[in-house]
Design a protein around this nucleic acid. Structure first.
Length: 416
DNA sequence: TCTGGGGTCCTAGGACCC
DNA sequence: TCTGGGGTCCTAGGACCC
């Protein structure tokens, strides 16, 4: 039997901000992804804010309405990454079998420890985080014999919790008390489909024959069948075996809906430049260009909480990390699929990635020139900040955050 | 005033090649 | 006269995670 810890930092970004600024101690704090006012959501709320009803993922104006005393802090990804690196170093001192699940979550497999020893180690890790990172920074730990249950256990006691699910008997007891979507892997859609089948809890799910689940959910039926029994064989993937990225993308929700193609063109060009820049920094090139946009809400879609996304992808003849080439493909798609209506969000993503530096040899002289130009621009922008230099087309463009924050969290609210 | 932004994986159908 | 079957790539769409 394996011994696995799931460690989840509580209100992570908020506690780091509280640690860094004594004025925020014990106060309701909300951390946002950027410095925009409208259409911004909270990516983290402090424990104090949560007690007053503020939730992660809430619109900024909504949080301020519920909790007027909340202090809003723009997120600082460098600060959080720095702390995460230090926290990971603590984890590494206990086991090399460490999976970094996200910036504030990790799985640790302890091959030589039983459950009681794992509990002792967990207390030690908690204490070390307080000493080495700060007393405001806490975490919840779940201990069990697989990842599914360790993660479930970790979510049961927040903040600063420590919950053990020792065996299958305990696992079934706990599974029978939680909501279906409290378990990682069941989202709103699958939950709704299970409810439609008359399955409201894991106890009922266990009575559904495997063949029936397979027929309804295909291969995911087997996962659901096992989930209800607390079975999960997925391995802890050590950080040093982490696979390469498969796609690089950016999307942007506009401050105001627009149906002006000039606005769209400028935003799209900027997004393509951002994606290309990140590809070059990672020394990658991509072949498949995917563009999508989200239509503005109408009173009907707003009431139903429905998003309408429209998108299409295309494959280039040759992989590229050139913002202009990516943009040309994206713009062509956009012109092909846009219905002329108002747009709320637009996104671009590049996949089919290949390793490799930007090629120094190109049989197309113009491409070659642009590549050298892009590299030079990267160097200057790397030194003086993104978009110090940019294409003339971007001069009047709408402001997009200079540094896209990769840590905005909380699940999607695609459809309820 | 009206739900962000970064990813992953899976399935299915069609095109194309040998 | 008539067209198998396997493999691979491409595209679209759906679901999940943080």
């Amino acid at each position: 039997m394996r011994t696995i810890l799931h460690i989840d930092m509580n209100s992570y970004f908020a506690t780091i901000e509280q640690q860094a600024n004594p004025r925020l101690h014990g106060k309701p704090v909300g951390v946002t992804g950027g410095d925009r006012e409208s259409r911004t959501v909270l990516c983290t709320a402090s424990v104090e804010a949560k007690k007053l009803g503020v939730k992660t993922g809430m619109m900024l104006w909504e949080a301020q309405k519920i909790c007027p005393s909340i202090t809003i802090v723009p997120g600082d990804s460098d600060k959080y990454l720095y702390c995460t690196t230090k926290i990971i170093d603590i984890f590494k001192s206990y086991t090399p079998f460490l999976e970094i699940f996200s910036i504030d979550e990790a799985f640790l497999e302890l091959p030589d420890a039983d459950i009681n020893q794992a509990a002792t180690i967990s207390r030690e890790i908690k204490a070390r985080i307080k000493v080495e990172i700060g007393e405001w920074v806490t975490c919840s730990v779940g201990i069990s014999y697989n990842k599914l249950l360790a993660k479930l256990a970790g979510g049961l006691q927040k903040p600063d919790g420590l919950v053990i699910i020792a065996d299958q008997r305990e696992a079934l007891q706990i599974l029978d008390q939680v909501e279906l979507d409290e378990v990682c892997g069941i989202g709103p859609r699958i939950k709704q489909r299970l409810l439609n089948m008359g399955v409201r809890d894991f106890k009922t799910l266990r009575r559904v024959p495997e063949e029936y689940l397979l027929a309804s959910f295909k291969s995911y039926g087997a996962i659901l069948y096992n989930m209800a029994r607390g079975i999960d064989e997925t391995p802890v993937k050590p950080f040093y075996l982490k696979e390469e990225v498969k796609s690089v993308g950016h999307c942007h929700t506009l401050d105001r809906d627009t149906a002006d193609p000039v606005d769209v063109k400028q935003i799209l060009l900027k997004l393509c430049e951002l994606v290309a820049y990140r590809l070059r920094r990672k020394q990658l090139k991509g072949k498949t260009i995917h563009l999508w946009y989200r239509s503005a809400f109408t009173p009907e879609t707003a009431a139903l909480r429905l998003f309408y996304d429209n998108g299409m992808q295309t494959t280039l003849n040759q992989s590229s990390s050139d913002g202009w080439i990516i943009f040309q493909a994206a713009w062509q798609i956009f012109r092909q699929i846009w219905d002329g209506g108002k747009i709320r969000m637009i996104g671009i993503s590049v996949s089919g990635l290949l390793p490799g530096k930007p090629a120094n040899v190109s049989w197309l002289p113009e491409d070659h020139r642009r590549e050298i130009l892009a590299q030079t621009m990267d160097k200057i922008n790397g030194k003086f900040g993104d978009f110090t230099l940019h294409r003339g087309t971007l001069l009047q463009s709408v402001q997009i955050r200079r540094k896209p924050n990769p840590f905005l969290s909380d699940r999607r609210f695609k459809l309820l």
